[in-house]
Amino acid sequence: MLDKIKNSFDDAGKLSLFTARFFKEVFKWPFQLNEFLRQCYVIGYKSLPLVTITGFIMGLVLTIQSRPTMSKFGAESWLPSMVSLSLIREIAPVITALICAGKIASGIGAELGSMKVTSQIDAMEVSAINPYKYLVVTRVLATTIMVPILVFYADFIGILGGYIGYNVHGNASMYSYFTNVIEHLEFLDILPATIKTFFFGFFIGLIGCYKGFNASGGTASVGHAANSAVVTASLSIFIIDMLAVQITDLFFS
Rank of each mutant, 00 (worst) to 15 (best):
M146E: 08
L17S: 13
T143S: 15
T96R: 02
L135W: 01
I240R: 00
K196R: 10
I190S: 04
I239E: 10
F238W: 10
I104S: 11
P148Y: 09
N34A: 12
M1N: 06
Y175P: 00
E183H: 12
Q246T: 07
I88F: 07
I57Q: 06
I91R: 01
Q120H: 07
I43E: 04
Y132A: 08
L98I: 15
A123Y: 03
K196P: 08
V126K: 07
D3R: 12
P49Q: 05
K133C: 08
G201I: 05
E90S: 09
D11P: 00
G74T: 00
I53R: 01
S234W: 13
Q65H: 11
N214I: 00
T232P: 01
L62P: 02
F152T: 03
D155S: 10
C209V: 00
L62D: 11
L62S: 13
W29R: 14
D241M: 02
A215D: 10
V136Y: 05
R21E: 14
S119Y: 05
F18R: 12
S81C: 01
T63H: 06
R89M: 05
G162T: 10
M146S: 09
I190W: 04
F22D: 08
D10V: 12
E183R: 14
F202W: 07
G201H: 09
E90K: 06
V42N: 13
M174D: 07
Y163A: 05
I108Y: 04
F27D: 04
F198P: 02
A128L: 12
P148G: 04
T219H: 09
L60V: 04
K133Q: 14
F31L: 08
V245D: 10
D189Y: 02
L141Q: 03
F203N: 00
V168K: 04
G13T: 09
V231Y: 14
E76S: 12
I159D: 06
I53H: 01
G55D: 05
I64P: 03
I240F: 08
H184Y: 14
V230I: 15
V126W: 07
L87W: 00
G223Y: 04
K196A: 07
C40A: 06
I240V: 14
Q65T: 12
S176Q: 11
I149E: 02
E35T: 10
I145M: 13
D155G: 06
V168N: 01
D241F: 09
D3T: 11
G109I: 04
G218D: 06
M82A: 13
S71H: 06
A244I: 06
A110K: 06
M58G: 02
S236W: 11
M174W: 11
M124D: 01
T197W: 11
I104L: 10
F22Y: 15
K46H: 11
N180G: 13
G113T: 11
S253Y: 09
V168D: 02
S221M: 06
F203S: 00
S114V: 11
P93V: 05
R67S: 14
M70D: 02
V117I: 12
A193P: 01
T144M: 14
F203P: 04
I149L: 15
N167V: 13
K46C: 03
T118N: 13
L79H: 02
F252H: 03
H224I: 14
F18C: 09
A142V: 05
F252A: 10
I190K: 05
F27R: 13
F252Y: 09
T197F: 09
A229V: 13
R21K: 14
V140K: 03
L37R: 10
